[in-house]
Design a protein around this nucleic acid. Structure first.
Length: 401
DNA sequence: AATCCACTGGAAAAAGAGGGCG
DNA sequence: CGCCCTCTTTTTCCAGTGGATT
């Protein structure tokens, strides 16, 4: 996405030797996963029966973002499939990011597509258009046709809007939906409280084993970055850069993904300014850039009206610098103006309230409740958390697209 | 204590898009 | 093609909320 590796010009990259090591999607090989040895062996232990074609334990993994949950789960699954193959057991794993596939149907579709091979099974899995039960039926057929054991990784399981899929998966065997295959579910959640919300029946079957991944400390973050430092050319990385970035990341979140992002941005800053080494002071800049990018990413893909609402709030913040928030009706007025300018019909007040709430959920704005004087009742104030200038800029730059 | 009233937020349902299947 | 399915966006309806005023 960021750069497509245009090898016409980059054959003599002065900074990066192997930039893929710093991409988020990169799955490190053996010995590159730092500080998670215990977790990995426990996880492996839980799913071990799969190697002999027996049912693996269902597992629930907790931990904040960037603590290596997905990484370890994927790594163990991959190793498991390899080992099982050595034993003559046909195993596979399917990975679902529930933040992207929030509904039951989408998640089933992703699993089915992930484990399917149309040439072998002759079963097609269309993107959409089928009923949920049809997707299930096809999934069961695919599984029985191809595999002895299947591990299903459900990442960010708390983003799922209902538990139905867990119910179906955990009971597939008993209900006789699948005969040959055994299923194992590995659920990954950011929220510890997730389990409380779960249906009792699902809870008992899904939570056979539970693991909590603690955040990385500064030393571990440093090791993680060191382990990937050969993404850079020799001598390019200033010795103080990694400790600095590690300290910064540990203090703020302990998120390894962000830490690696920062390292990559620092490298890119060096690259674009033509400096031959990655210096310590780039780390601060890199962090800022990571934040702006995060915001752009949040905005991207939102509907026009969702943007207008944000724009209205940005406009208000710019013209009234020292106010701590703007009430809904005020935002709505400005929003209506913007709609007139853009020549589109404005949405109802009710809808705009929901849009504001969505933004609050993404930490773009902050909402606070107030109670007013006579005939005022209770109301909500909205305040932009990002820099209004940045918001306005990002919002207007995308209009031509 | 009753009343005001601008605003809140849950619920349901319409509308419309996207897509498969026979 | 007609029917069925899902899913998102949006509207409509309505029962609260809560401090100041009466």
């Amino acid at each position: 996405m960021l750069d497509t590796g245009d090898d016409l010009f980059t054959r003599e990259d002065p900074i990066f030797a192997n930039k893929e090591l710093l991409e988020i999607s990169h799955l490190p090989g053996e010995g590159r996963i730092v500080g998670r040895d215990d977790e990995i062996s426990q996880l492996a232990n839980a799913v071990n029966p799969a190697i002999f074609g027996q049912s693996p334990s269902n597992v629930l993994i907790y931990g904040k973002t960037g603590t290596g949950k997905s990484l370890c789960a994927k790594y163990v699954s991959k190793r498991l499939v390899e080992t099982a193959a050595g034993e003559g057991v046909e195993a596979a794993f399917a990975y679902v990011d529930c933040a992207q596939d929030t509904t039951e149907t989408q998640a089933v579709q992703t699993i089915a597509e992930g484990v399917n091979d149309p040439d072998e099974t002759g079963i097609r899995v269309p993107d959409k258009g089928l009923s949920t039960s049809t997707y299930y039926k096809r999934l069961w057929r695919i599984l029985d046709a191809r595999f002895d054991v299947v591990l299903i990784l459900l990442d960010e399981i708390d983003k799922l809007d209902d538990d139905d899929i867990l119910m179906q998966l955990s009971r597939a065997g008993e209900a006789g939906k699948i005969e040959r295959s055994k299923l194992g579910v590995i659920g990954i959640s950011n929220k510890i409280q997730y389990k409380d919300r779960m249906d009792e029946r699902v809870k008992s079957s899904l939570c056979e084993r539970e693991f909590v991944f603690p955040p990385y400390d500064a030393n571990q973050l440093r090791d993680i970055m060191e382990a990937r430092s050969d993404a850079f050319r020799e001598g390019v990385l200033d010795p103080s850069t990694i400790p600095r970035a590690a300290a910064l990341a540990a203090r703020e979140h302990g998120d390894a993904r962000k830490a690696i992002d920062i390292l990559r941005y620092a490298g890119e800053i060096a690259q674009s300014t033509g400096v031959p080494t990655v210096r310590e002071e780039f780390v601060t800049q890199a962090r800022e850039r990571a934040e702006t990018d995060r915001f752009r990413e949040l905005i991207r893909g939102s509907t026009p009206h969702s943007r207008y609402v944000l724009q209205a709030l940005a406009l208000l913040s710019l013209s009234n610098q020292r106010q701590d928030g703007f009430r809904t009706s005020r935002v709505y007025e400005i929003y209506e103006n913007i709609c007139r300018q853009e020549g589109s019909d404005s949405l109802s007040l009710r809808r705009v309230r929901d849009l504001l709430k969505e933004h609050a959920f993404l930490d773009i704005i902050e909402q606070s409740k107030h109670s007013g004087g006579s005939a005022e009742g209770s109301y909500t104030k909205h305040r932009l958390l990002e820099d209004p200038e940045v918001v306005k800029e990002v919002l207007t730059e995308n209009i031509d697209g």
